[in-house]
């Protein structure tokens, strides 16, 4: 009798855990952007909003609103302003509430003046 079968009977665990180990292919997945906080001025934020094709980015006053749920990880924001945007590397993004995916990112410059 295989060991895992005996173990399952003893512990009552009928399914396995996820993930057993980190999947190496996860490193190549397209992921939403991460923004460099110190480079985000109003001008940069407006450039980013303009580059976004799916309305994931918008600016209201001194905050950039990033909707990770609307983001398609196309990378156009990173192309528009290469220094300010990097890969976040986050792909396990499931949320139990839609609001959890909408992030407010404070801009620099304006509040310091």
């Amino acid at each position: 009798m295989p060991l895992w079968f005996a173990r399952g009977l003893r512990r009552g665990v009928v399914t396995t855990r996820y993930p057993a180990q980190r999947d190496p292919s996860a490193a190549d997945l397209p992921t939403p952007p991460a923004f460099c906080a110190e480079k985000l001025t109003r001008e940069v934020a407006d450039q980013l909003c303009q580059a976004c094709p799916c309305g994931a980015l918008s600016r209201a006053g001194d905050a950039l609103t990033f909707d990770a749920g609307a983001c398609t990880a196309c990378g156009r924001c990173a192309q528009a302003v290469p220094g300010a945007v990097t890969r976040s590397g986050e792909f396990e993004l499931a949320a139990t509430r839609r609001e959890h995916l909408i992030k407010q990112i404070p801009l620099v410059g304006e509040s310091e003046r």
């Binding site: 996820y18 939403p32 991460a34 110190e38 990112i105």
Partner: peptide, 21 residues
């Protein structure tokens, strides 16, 4: 996450990277 076997991660993500741009 839907069946409660993993915790939600996205709630605490900020998508902000500080330092070494």
């Amino acid at each position: 996450v839907a069946v409660g076997r993993l915790a939600e991660k996205s709630r605490t993500m900020t998508f902000v990277q500080n330092g070494n741009p």
